[in-house]
């Protein structure tokens, strides 16, 4: 009886460890499956390879593709921090000294990868279908600008965004899509006046992507309650 109990505990432990492993490796397996089915770009594969062997807390990044005038100060290459999978959701992972709460304020792409539902089917992209499965999307931006889903999303491949000329780009390269209209912001972002650098002022330059701060469907920054006010009266009389 004792043996059986011990066996049971061991089995449970093994299952626990195994499921932990599966969880850890899921992004890799997902990307591997995607690679076979949808033909991943080099950037996807590079990010997946990096994710597979990175240390906890290390940044997944992607080299920013230089576009016309904006390539960073001194035209030096820089990298964009990327959230690729569910792996980070719900964990207060630290990016350098920045916690999830402050650096990454919006939800991760919650239903990624898109092919888990949209697989082998043509997507019908009309806004009255948003409520079917994407109730979390507030389409403020398209409504205000008159854009359609297909203005940014590729109908042929739901994993991709579509630039104006039809070129498909990955979600990690969303800055190329945003820059088509917001070229002034993109230039300031590449130069360092807009957005956020993560790794330090020296060495490797990693910046956050557009979607790390702005919800693409509702990009305006929302109001919230600030950190507590200083007690200036107390400070004046007891401190300064």
């Amino acid at each position: 009886m004792w043996t059986r109990l011990v066996n049971g505990v061991v089995c449970l432990a093994v299952v626990g460890i195994a499921s932990g492993c599966v969880d850890e490796q899921r992004p890799e397996r997902e990307t591997a499956a995607l690679a076979a089915d949808t033909g991943l770009t080099d950037i996807d594969l590079a990010v997946a390879a990096f994710n597979a062997q990175r240390q906890p807390g290390e940044l997944p990044t992607v080299q920013a593709a230089p576009v016309d005038r904006w390539a960073g100060p001194g035209a030096r290459p820089f990298e964009v921090a990327v959230r690729t999978s569910k792996q980070e959701a719900g964990h207060p992972r630290r990016f350098g000294s920045i916690t999830l709460e402050t650096a990454l304020r919006i939800r991760p792409v919650s239903q990624y990868p898109c092919t888990s539902c949209h697989f082998g089917r043509t997507v019908v992209m009309t806004d009255d279908r948003i409520d079917d499965a994407h109730q979390n999307i507030q389409p403020v931006h398209p409504e205000e600008t008159g854009a359609l889903c297909s203005t940014c999303h590729s109908a042929d491949n739901v994993e991709r965004l579509a630039l104006a000329q039809g070129e498909p780009v990955t979600l990690t390269e969303s800055y190329r899509l945003c820059a088509q209209c917001h070229f002034q912001q993109a230039e300031a972002w590449a130069g360092g006046a807009h957005g956020k650098r993560l790794d330090g002022w020296q060495g490797r330059r990693v910046v956050m992507g557009c979607g790390d701060c702005h919800d693409p469907h509702s990009p305006a920054i929302q109001q919230r309650i600030p950190f507590r006010a200083p007690e200036l009266e107390r400070a004046r009389t007891t401190h300064e």
Binding site: S97, T102, G192, W201, C213
Partner: peptide, 26 residues
């Protein structure tokens, strides 16, 4: 080589910090 804590913590990235002697700095 790290950023000051205020720069690292600023959610909208309103703070820019770097080396004035490096012509390629932000």
């Amino acid at each position: 080589g790290q950023l000051p804590a205020c720069v690292a913590a600023c959610p909208p990235g309103a703070r820019v910090f770097g080396n004035l002697l490096d012509p390629d700095s932000e």
